[in-house]
């Protein structure tokens, strides 16, 4: 009788310990996986020209891309804020465009659609809490970037996803161009200059610009 009681006690202990192991595994997977979305896309980012990379439907290194929406052009920009905040500029010339901001592990912390556009553009500053506080305190934010949306990144590394909707197959080129024209790079002194003199925009070759809306 006593032996049976001990056996049941051991079973109970095993089950409780099993439940603890289960919880520990689930909660620590994000911390121990380096094949997360950032890890898989990190190689697409270069310090000189970190910009949006259009993802092909397959063979992108992201297995689920095979199940992505074929009517959406998906472009990603991988950021690392350790050397400074990022500037993101999206022109939104397609029927529908949205931007989602993902922390290093892939979870969304902010998302916005082209309904938030100002003068046909969506501009964002992505920074950590400290970097943003510095930008605001130094007065740089008010002087140069007051037209941008402040995005506080919970992690120093992350991924920005730009989705450009293609309502008809013939509009595919338009959404690809739109993704190619989107900018995503570390804040530079040039950005301050450009925000002061918008005519610099004119130096972009016209054939690089997507056609006006309504041209579809």
């Amino acid at each position: 009788m006593r032996a049976r009681y001990r056996f049941l006690l051991a079973t109970l202990a095993g089950l409780i310990l099993g439940a603890i192991i289960h919880i520990v595994i689930i909660l620590t997977i994000p911390a121990f996986t380096d094949r997360d979305v950032y890890g898989l896309l990190e190689h697409t980012s270069h310090d000189d020209a970190p910009d949006f990379i259009s993802m092909p439907e397959s063979g992108s290194g992201l297995p689920w891309m095979a199940h992505a929406d074929p009517a959406v052009n998906l472009a990603v920009c991988v950021y690392d804020l350790r050397k400074g905040p990022y500037l993101l500029s999206v022109s939104g010339e397609t029927a529908f465009q949205s931007v989602s901001f993902h922390a290093q592990k892939g979870n969304v912390y902010f998302a916005v659609t082209d309904q938030a556009q100002v003068h046909g553009r969506n501009e964002f500053i992505i920074a950590t809490d400290n970097q943003m506080a510095q930008l605001v305190q130094s007065g740089d934010y008010d002087s140069y970037y007051s037209h941008t949306i402040k995005v506080f990144s919970p992690t120093t590394k992350g991924v920005i996803v730009l989705r450009s909707f293609t309502p008809y197959p013939s509009a595919k080129q338009l959404s690809e161009n739109s993704a190619a024209l989107a900018e995503c790079h570390r804040l530079t002194a040039q950005d301050q200059l450009r925000s002061q003199s918008p005519e610099l925009e004119e130096t972009i070759p016209q054939d690089l610009l997507p056609p006006r809306r309504g041209g579809i």
Partner: peptide
């Protein structure tokens, strides 16, 4: 996002659609 979905998103390297999108 719940911890199980978080683990799946991380482990399968997904980019879920954002709430507002």
């Amino acid at each position: 996002i719940d911890p199980y979905a978080m683990a799946i998103v991380t482990q399968k390297a997904r980019l879920p659609l954002g709430v507002n999108e």
